[in-house]
């Protein structure tokens, strides 16, 4: 080929720009990769029937500052998916409460048919652990439902 313009023309066929057309595809691939490989912490729900309350309020606290204590109908207790004997509750809760700098809120998720003796024991244990803020978890009850009962 003959050299045009005496060889001074510097135009090249290679683009001077970063090829950005496939950027979105790469981003999507990354997104899908992380979606597929993400494993959520297995936080299995205990099979309980919630008590209902009309005055139930949202727990105004960060998720990491809420400790759930599950209580089944037979009085068995689960903290962080681990079965815990009743007498050990205060020993387990006290260090967690200290770690959170007394910001921890205990959410007691009891079955509606738990005999109250177990609830009282848990409350005694929590008092012994020095916990102050406790929430009895409940489902929101509509006024309509209440009339029918």
């Amino acid at each position: 080929m003959s050299i045009k313009g005496g060889g001074f023309e510097k135009s090249s066929k290679a683009s001077s720009e970063v090829p950005s057309s496939s950027l979105a595809d790469i981003a999507f691939l990354l997104l899908i990769f992380f979606m597929v490989t993400t494993v959520f912490q297995q936080d299995r729900d205990r099979p309980i029937e919630w008590p209902e309350a009309e005055a139930a309020e949202k727990i105004d606290e960060k998720q990491k500052n809420i400790l759930n204590i599950w209580m089944e109908r037979d009085g068995s207790i689960f903290i962080n998916d681990q079965p815990v004997p009743m007498v050990d509750v205060s020993q387990i809760v006290a260090p967690l409460y200290a770690d959170s700098e007394r910001a921890l809120v205990i959410s007691i998720r009891g079955d509606r048919d738990v005999p109250y003796r177990f609830m009282d024991q848990v409350q005694q244990e929590l008092v012994a652990a020095g916990v102050v803020r406790v929430v009895f978890a409940a489902q929101m009850e509509q006024a309509m439902q209440r009339e029918r009962r």
Binding site: E57, K58, I59, Q123, G130, V132, V134, A137
Partner: peptide
Amino acid sequence: PKDKGLGVVLPEP
């Protein structure tokens, strides 16, 4: 959805 419930304040030991 945030957890809902009835809050109580327990007495100090």
